[in-house]
Write a protein that binds this DNA or RNA. Sequence first.
DNA 1: ACATTAATGTGGT
DNA 2: ACCACATTAATGT
Length: 204
Amino acid sequence: MKTISCMNIDPQTLYKFGGQGKKYNAKDIIYQEGDPALYYYQITKGKIKQNSYNEEGKEFIQNILGENQSFGDPMLFLEKYYIMNAICLTPAEVIRMPKNNFLEMLEKNPKLSLEMNACLSQRLYFKAIMLQSISSQNPVLRLKGLLNYLKSYNADECEQCFHVELTRQQIANLTGLRVETVIRALKKMEKQGELKIDNRKILY
DNA sequence: ACATTAATGTGGT
DNA sequence: ACCACATTAATGT
């Protein structure tokens, strides 16, 4: 399966249409719930997460994005406010482009416009998979939903050598499970030969 | 180098 | 699922 890098636009093109490089430190908040969506963001370095908090204050991670991926773009097509936060997990560099410039860029580049459709579809696909797996009561099944997706996304097809670069806490916050449950379910899966754990690293 | 915080494991309720 | 606690890894000053 081919990896879809979503949404990976050539930086030259981004700068041409008014994109600007921005640097952030780990834990910096790029935008938060309630902010109006004003920019297109594409990551050139580092990792960011999109999250929200429930009534009890528990964190739910919506997604974790890495290099050459964009975030927050669905909001550019709506006159709405963000319903989640974007926070840096590592020091990060992004290219930020004002919404109107972004839309103009799409108008002038039908090819990019098509790619944008593919990108949004990819996001919907991810949401659907996560929704399905999260609706399961069985923690192992929830984990499988997430892991299968991550593997297919990164995908060099190889048995149990895909390194899941998420902490157990992050996995818990992505699946709505407790850390302890994640740890135990992972061990169970290891016992059943469904994945390997090499000194805390998860190989799936 | 040391203190603090975050992540990982385990056991019990 | 939740809580308490021990061990280990990562980060800050």
